[in-house]
Design a protein around this nucleic acid. Structure first.
Length: 276
DNA sequence: ACAGGAACCTGATAGC
DNA sequence: TGCTATCAGGTTCCTG
């Protein structure tokens, strides 16, 4: 479900509430979501530990505990992480309950159960390949226009596939990729290597702008996504193309098209986003 | 090494 | 109404 702006919003809405709390008990209702170590060991090494910080890398959330263990959470398509007070009801999609020392709980809910959780010492985080091999994030110092030029020029893939690939850029997902290609006026089926310098400059600006706006608006809620307080984001009201199939392009009025590109449903304006 | 497609899951919605 | 097919904010594994 969530892309970087959604995960960052979850982090921001939870960090202050969780920092300083201890994990009193862990109730694992769906053990197969725990990828490392076993569910029993996972429970054992985090129970009774205090939360020092909640950080993020790309679409991963990292809960740092006072015994040097880090709980790594990836929400995948439909994962939700949110805070509840003792009287709140737990829905049927709640898969893991972290009971806190103050009586409240941190819930991990997930309808499609594709999410993943790990717990390991901080010096072993490199074992998680998705974290280890992740490229720079939009808005970071490492994500420069020169970097983007190099990534695109040496690729044989379509530009959409490159932007979705976390090893090149960490944090973009299907919605925001469609949005930044629309803003930059680039057709999603173009090969990455075919983009000229002006197009790459536009794309670079669009990536940073779209991600900054997404965070500013607390993420995009289409169906499942909620922040750490269980609230929806508002960026869905600002989307140019995603979810707008058949509706008029805001720039030229042409109906927005939808096609499969790089294995994903892809929205674009056939007039403003040229194939060459 | 790299690109493309299937697999992992469950639920909502569209179409018949 | 009820059944079936399709689609979904992601990543990893297997194949060619």
């Amino acid at each position: 479900m969530p892309e970087m702006p959604e995960v960052e919003t979850v982090r921001r809405t939870l960090a202050e509430k969780l920092t300083g709390c201890s994990i009193r008990h862990v109730d694992i209702k769906l053990p197969r979501l725990i990828k490392w170590p076993s569910a029993n060991e996972f429970q054992a090494i985090i129970t009774g530990k205090r939360i020092l910080a909640l950080t993020r890398r790309g679409k991963y959330l990292l809960l740092h505990l006072d015994n040097d263990i880090v709980v790594i959470i990836h929400l995948r398509m439909t994962g939700r992480l949110y805070y509840t007070t003792k009287n709140d009801k737990i829905d049927k999609f709640t898969r893991i309950v972290f009971e806190l020392s103050n009586g409240d709980s941190l819930l991990y809910a997930d309808t499609r159960t594709l999410g993943t959780l790990y717990a390991m010492p901080s010096e072993e985080l490199w074992r998680i390949s998705g974290l280890f091999s992740m490229g720079p994030e939009p808005l970071s110092d490492e994500f420069t226009e020169v970097y983007l030029v190099n990534v695109l020029k040496k690729s044989k893939s379509k530009v959409k596939a490159v932007l979705l690939n976390q090893k090149y850029i960490g944090g973009l997902g299907n919605i925001y990729v469609d949005e930044c290609l629309a803003i930059a006026g680039i057709h999603p089926e173009r090969t990455a290597a075919s983009l000229n310098n002006l197009e790459i400059t536009k794309l670079y600006g669009a990536i940073n702008q779209v991600i900054a706006d997404g965070i500013e608006h607390g993420g995009t809620t289409f169906r499942d996504y909620r922040d750490g307080d269980g609230k929806s984001g508002t960026h869905q009201h600002f989307l140019q193309v995603y979810g707008r199939k058949g509706l008029p392009c805001y720039r030229c009025g042409t109906p927005i098209a939808k096609a499969e590109v790089a294995g994903r449903g892809t929205h674009f304006c056939p007039q403003c986003q040229h194939k060459e």
